[in-house]
């Protein structure tokens, strides 16, 4: 049981080693002649104006919040899906109500205009 996951750990280490070596090899093989204009930020050749790491639109947060709603709901549905065969019709109706609650909250968000991209 636990050895099932060992293989993923081994693959993680092997893949990290094989892939991590690639940029280092590139660094060793390729010519390295950096100069000031080469190391400038590439924004269509214009000089960079202002700071990049600024506050960004709150719109993205709204999408992320709705995502969290459905993701957590989805995680709760996975065990149900595995146990589906041992549940009767009443259990299915209860879970449908749970899913419909999620859908209702999505409908509320849409109605409030939270998901309108401007």
């Amino acid at each position: 049981m636990r050895t099932d996951y060992a293989f993923i750990g081994v693959t993680l280490v092997v893949a990290c080693a094989l892939i991590g070596v690639v940029p280092i090899l590139n660094y060793l093989i390729a010519p390295q002649t950096p100069n000031k204009s080469k190391r400038e930020t590439y924004e269509c050749g214009m000089e960079t104006v202002g700071d990049t790491w600024v506050q960004f639109r709150a719109q993205y947060y709204l999408f992320a919040l709705i995502f969290v709603l459905f993701d957590v709901g989805g995680v709760l549905l996975f065990p149900f899906a595995v146990a589906y065969n041992s549940v009767n019709l009443w259990g299915v109706i209860v879970v449908s109500l749970f899913v419909l609650t999620l859908l209702a909250s999505l409908g509320y968000a849409i109605k409030k205009g939270a998901l309108n991209w401007e």
């Binding site: 093989i29 190391r39 400038e40 990049t52």
Partner: peptide, 18 residues
């Protein structure tokens, strides 16, 4: 790609970028 110079922007965050 292996023989191409790997330019890093001066302002980049070293660890996150690499």
């Amino acid at each position: 790609l292996f023989t191409k110079e790997d330019t890093t922007p001066a302002e980049a965050d070293f660890w996150v970028y690499n």
